[in-house]
Design a protein around this nucleic acid. Sequence first.
DNA 1: TCCATTTGCCTATAAGCATTAGGCAAATGT
DNA 2: ACATTTGCCTAATGCTTATAGGCAAATGGA
Lengths: 189, 189
Amino acid sequence: MARAGLSTQRLIDAGAELADEVGFDQATLSALARRFDVKVASLYSHLKNSHDLRTGIALLALEQLADRAAEAMAGRAGRDALAALGNTFRDYAREHPGRYAAAQYRLYPQAAAASAGVRLSQLTRAVLRGYDLAEPEQTHAVRLLGSAFHGYVALELAGGFSHSAPDSQESWSRSLDALDALLRNWPAP
Amino acid sequence: MARAGLSTQRLIDAGAELADEVGFDQATLSALARRFDVKVASLYSHLKNSHDLRTGIALLALEQLADRAAEAMAGRAGRDALAALGNTFRDYAREHPGRYAAAQYRLYPQAAAASAGVRLSQLTRAVLRGYDLAEPEQTHAVRLLGSAFHGYVALELAGGFSHSAPDSQESWSRSLDALDALLRNWPAP
DNA sequence: TCCATTTGCCTATAAGCATTAGGCAAATGT
DNA sequence: ACATTTGCCTAATGCTTATAGGCAAATGGA
């Protein structure tokens, strides 16, 4: 009986593709087994359970996001860095909606601390180096920036901005302008 | 055989409570039937399917959100109106996490157009009456505002701001200050 | 190269969830 | 009082996750 050549990594990679195609919560072990033309029980040699698959996809997505963000932000500051980070999130979510959803998957604190999510939040903080903000205002700004990026991407992905003028791209671009202006003129506490 | 006295509305109300307790996607027909001490099949006299239940909870959540927002915003303008709307979202999400998640549930365009979501977006636009913004900048601002609110609430609910200083309440308050400042000094296109 | 061990995928089984079909009894209205 | 409607039931199906145990393919040591 020929073997299918499964491995944890191959399953997670295929799971990520599956998630992009059918949605993160439709990326089931059953569907994954079907994709490899293998019985579901066979997957349990490589994954502890379905939570394991989801965690794996989440960690993959965070890695990819952090890699892309680091590359996009390299050598940029101010509005350029801000746009690089924001566009990384938005583009990734549009290219890989399932993975983007996975990146929001609730990890155990321990797993979260060891994930690329940490790198990602360092990059967000790095954007603020181009502006003049001391603690604790810097942290407030990091949180607001993360909220605005994530919120915009989530609402856009949910179709919130799709069926009315003006174009979502236009609003996105102006939102980056606005956030840049805000960081340059952060109100006194 | 005594009857349980089910009805569509009672099921949806109980489903909303269930969602708050165990999470929106754990609010299943099975769990709901258990709660009424009734067999699952009995629910199908009142609900077409599980999507129907989810849609019902979503519409309920949107109604409640819009009602709360309208009351909180009445008679307020500027930063007060902004804070009233933002706090409505945040407080509702903290009190009713399952319902808040439901409010993000993707509705059919037709259902969405007839929902209280429309009222909610009118209220968001009403906040901007206290500031001086003409179209299309006004729409960009509405979208950014909605993104920031939703993003903050989602990240806070996911535990993003819970395990490090400064306090999330502090960041929220400063974010409202910052958004108010931004709307007062919206950058020229 | 032989053979022991490990590993990978299998069958079988069980439990939870969504859904449909069909039945009986309680509620309702005339 | 009786016919009709309605509400909840049992039964059955199919899909999902998960566990236990088995056999054959890969691996590695002599």
